[in-house]
Amino acid sequence: MAKKYTLDELLIISAAREINDGDCVILGVGLPTTAGAVAKALFAPNATLMMESGIIDFEPLVPPNHIADANACRGFSYATDLFSMFTMTYRGFVDVCFLGVAQIDKFGNINTTVIGDYDHPDMRLPGSGGAPEFLSYAKRTVLTMRGGEFVETLDYLTSPGFLDGGDSREKSGLFPKGSGPSMLLTTQGVFRFDETTKEMYLAQLHPGITVEMVRNNIPWDLKVADSVLITPAPSDQEIDFIRRFAPTESVGRKLMYELGIINTLKKAAERVKA
């Protein structure tokens, strides 16, 4: 019988499958680094994993705490700086990058800056970080959204997707041909972008999710692929790797915090006893 998996493990492996052997990959913290670690360990041994702080060609041993975490690996091949990491991206040396999303519109434009009015925000989010340049110049960009929202109009355009759709991104003359978001991964499924209209469509559903459930979260009339695939389950080997490498990622944030707090209190009590 195949091994059972968590939702987070399914998402991690879905992202990992976007990495091809030999790719130069920019990884953000959380799901992407775990995805990169799985890919490198199991099916893309020649991928070059990079973090925008200038850590190039690393093999994480534990999930990095942030994008400058040289403690998460045992050495790496090339130390450069953030400026050069971005110009490397600008020159087209990055094959795939991973970005988290707070708001997204149907053409894959993203907002990670603010919900509501910019000057008087409902929610002030982290901001751009490296996202705009990565989404502009990486050959492919995998977007991940958990807890974010689909909107007709973004409250703030942080990073450019396919702009107004169609050939508007290409026509702007600002971005390399073929660049832009290549997929959006959510807790319900996988969306891709139509080759001509550049509008996102539902390409894949996670097991147990229906098209209706997805439509409920989307304010426009969502296009759906003629044959929607079901996200393949992770293999036993993949599950074992992820759960051993990044157990806190496997269980999801909620359970991690719950168990983490219990553990901290328990240790404190033991210290008092001693």
Partner: peptide, 22 residues
């Protein structure tokens, strides 16, 4: 290191909470 559980305990918790699929 963060959650203080063994792999066996972790698997049991995931099962009990109904967090496992497939």
């Amino acid at each position: 290191r963060t959650m203080g559980v063994t792999m066996e305990e972790l698997n049991t918790i995931l099962e009990e909470r109904g967090l496992l699929r497939g």
